[in-house]
Amino acid sequence: MKILVCISKTPDTTAKIAFTDNNTKFSEAGVQFIINPYDEWYALVRALELKEAQGATVHLITVGGADTEAVIRKALALGGDEAFRVNSDSQDSFFIASQIAEIAKQEQYDIIFTGKETIDYNGSSVGGMVAELLGLPFVSIASKLDVNGGTATLKREIEGGEEVVEVSLPLVLSAQKGMAEARIPNMRGIMAARTKPLKVVEPAAAETLTSIVSFELPPAKAGVKMIPADQVEELARLLHEEAKVI
């Protein structure tokens, strides 16, 4: 079995968000970067579990500049076998998906994992686009994946419940919480990752369909109105009469 896991570099979940250049650029000053949690905790770890249980080769891919190499090395330290970095800073989901599809066409994967979404641009788009570009089925927001021969069984969330679906390999899926438990790379993995292949490729020609014009921060809250614990009825009254939400 041959598996590809798409890895994105995102700011740490505790990062304070600020912008520069007249609110057109994310300020990276003082920001620590991590593997997008959905890509790491769920997609990559489930791919590694499948490798351990059934035998598989796990490739990683990221589309980013040289500064993404630290996160891709970490993903290798967790257990990926080899990695591709497509050398482009593009933020456009279609451009990124086109790069991944280009590599996937050459490598012919059985399963392509993405995270549910990245925690920076929240596009939740790349997986579906890759599937379309490759003509493969796409199962989104999957919380469980089992593979039996050529068939994958997945659990995915729907409004107000869950459904179990079956699909023949190859497929593309987006992974979310529930699929696996986070792991920490061990020293042996970290050492091994240094010498694992990381191929840098230049991007293929592809279109860009969107561009970010500017960023904004949410308006500050007006301030909290505190209600004494022995006047709970007053809270209900305020929610009804002032906030008009009940």
Partner: peptide
């Protein structure tokens, strides 16, 4: 931008080469 939309809209975007804003 619900479960179905998250699944279908990106596929349609790639098929039609139509730019997609999610959410």
């Amino acid at each position: 931008h619900n479960f179905a939309g998250r699944s279908i809209a990106p596929q349609l975007s790639a098929r039609l080469k139509a730019g997609f804003v999610a959410g």
